[in-house]
Nucleic acid binder design. Structure first.
Length: 516
DNA sequence: GGACGGTGAAACTTCAGGTTGCCTC
DNA sequence: GAAGTTTCACCGTCC
């Protein structure tokens, strides 16, 4: 706790500290507790900076055009970057994050205002770390962040190769808060670390993979293994631990992921050494690395799907109603009615049993509906800006969700394979492709071409070029008009047509195009 | 008298992030 | 718990 006066440029202490850092010719990372707060802090600092330069303009351009259409978030970030300031959180697309990280490393970007992502993921040291607020929202109101997290964040201060020292600065709102921070974080001890194995989904997953990998073949071997884990060391009560594992083994057997070899003369002693093996399904589930409970849920949904009419909503809602898809989009109070209405429209396509409105899990169920509807919009070619406005879902968060959904759909595909549900396999594969590109089914043939994504495929389609055959037949000049010369050349090449000389004569604008 | 618009206070809403899988249709 | 957003009552103005 030094006693240094920082010049006042504005009435905002974070902005003052940031400007002071820049004046020293150094860089800083500001940690905020929410995405919004990080964005605002960056914007505040950017506003009080006048100058920019050509390099920053170039980076700003890259940030703005990371997506096919810039979102409000892209615009806001691009504005900050022009002044050498950035915000950084999980809502950004990886291309934007990379641009920020690289240009912070090379010194062009001076200040990054970030959520805790930056403290864990990437190695980005700065001369100064400014922690805007050491409290964070929790279900029980605002809570102080763990000491471990404070250490993680302040540990980013000081660049080993460039500075002899670093400064970590925590902002206090009052004298009382200052003392609290000093005692809790500067003098305080970091918290104990607890084993994550105690969480049921994790335990289930590891138990199944132990068996599936043939690492343990009977219950005593299993117990032997778990007794030597950190979890058991912390848990201490081996009796209770054995009960938990027994129960879980029963469940895995009931779900038919494992089988116990039945001895003819079974008695209590032998029970312990009874051979336990994973079933074919159990083995695959372990490889797919999904929670066995999720796998069981998917299997029952797919069984329902095999003898009824399904659509993309059926499969997406199934994927959304799993632990792996969390956190789901939340249904707000005002939206409740709207989502219920949508649910009624899609109700007959549900694969799971719909919980009653009065059951506690109903909220979660509705959230899964909303999340599935968001995916439906994505596969209906709505872009990132639309999803941001409609669902308050940022582009980077969309990517994470799409990735998770793909993993679950792939798993469903694999499970369908084992269950010999041929038509389901095809349906799921098609849906995965549509999710990857965010397109309606009609564009799928065109997406097989390199350099053709959702935007160009849609342009082609609207100009009546609907499949590979149409691309072959299409007039080259028309393709140039739609795709630009380079892409058109490449595309023609891909369908086996080498264009040697670019026909001249006709000039742009002579062919009328549908652009949309 | 009523439609319209501006204002501010009250009510309401929202709030970090990341690991896993596989190959392509 | 705090900041941002929406809602709504209230008031003044204009036609």
């Amino acid at each position: 706790m030094g006693n240094k006066k920082i010049p006042n440029h504005s009435d905002n202490s974070v902005t003052n500290l940031a400007l002071d850092t820049i004046n020293l010719g150094k860089q800083a990372i500001v940690f905020a507790n929410t995405k919004r707060s990080a964005e605002k802090a960056a914007e505040e600092i950017a506003k009080s900076i006048k100058v920019g330069n050509a390099d920053l303009e170039r980076i700003s351009d890259g940030i703005l055009n990371a997506l096919s259409r810039p979102t409000k978030q892209c615009e806001r970030l691009a504005y900050c970057i022009k002044k050498g300031i950035a915000f950084h959180h999980a809502g950004l697309v990886s291309k934007q994050r990379e641009l920020i990280e690289n240009n912070f490393r090379n010194g062009l970007i001076k200040i990054i205002c970030a959520t805790p992502t930056l403290a864990y993921g990437v190695d980005l040291p700065a001369f100064r770390v400014i922690i805007k607020d050491l409290r964070r929202y929790s279900p029980r109101g605002l809570a102080w962040i763990p000491v471990l997290e404070y250490l993680q964040q302040s540990g980013r201060a000081g660049r080993p190769k460039f500075d002899k020292t670093g400064e970590a600065i925590a902002i206090a709102g009052s004298e009382g808060e200052k003392n609290k921070i000093y005692e809790m974080y500067i003098l305080g001890e970091p918290e104990d670390i607890y084993s994550k194995l105690a969480v049921e989904p994790v335990l289930r997953t590891y138990l199944l993979s132990l068996i599936a990998a043939d690492f343990t073949r009977n219950k005593s071997q299993i117990m032997d293994f778990f007794e030597r884990t950190f979890w058991a060391y912390q848990f201490r009560d081996f009796g209770k631990l054995e009960m938990i594992i027994s129960k879980m083994l029963d469940l895995l057997e009931e779900w038919e992921f494992i089988a116990r070899k039945k001895n003819e003369f079974r008695d209590a002693d032998k029970f312990e050494n009874e051979e336990i093996r994973a079933t074919v399904m159990g083995k695959r589930v372990a490889e797919l690395y999904i929670d066995p409970l999720t796998a069981f849920f998917i299997i029952s949904c797919l069984r329902n799907a095999s003898d009824k009419k399904i659509n993309e909503f059926s499969l997406l809602q199934m994927a959304c109603h799993t632990l792996e898809m969390r956190p789901l989009l939340r249904v707000g109070a005002k939206e409740n009615e709207k989502i219920q209405e949508e649910l009624i429209k899609h109700e007959s396509f549900l694969l799971e049993h719909e919980p009653s409105m009065y059951e506690p899990e109903y909220d979660d169920f509705l959230n899964s509906i909303k999340t599935a509807l968001m995916f439906i919009d994505w596969t209906d070619e709505k872009d990132e800006e639309f999803l941001l406005e409609q669902y308050n879902l940022r582009p980077g968060e969309l990517r994470v969700k799409l990735d998770n959904a793909d993993w679950l759909l792939y798993s469903s595909e694999e499970i369908s394979r084992i269950l010999h549900y041929q038509s389901l396999i095809r349906e799921i594969a098609k849906l995965r492709l549509r999710m990857k590109y965010g397109v309606r089914e009609e564009l799928l043939p065109l997406l097989r071409l390199e350099q053709i994504g959702r935007v160009r495929a849609r342009k082609l389609y609207n100009n009546k070029i609907k499949d590979i055959g149409d691309v072959k037949k299409a007039d080259f000049l028309k393709l140039v008009q739609i795709l630009g010369e380079k892409v058109a050349l490449n595309v023609k090449k891909q369908v086996g047509e080498e264009i040697k000389e670019i026909p001249s004569g006709k000039r742009k604008g002579q062919i009328s195009l549908v652009d949309y």
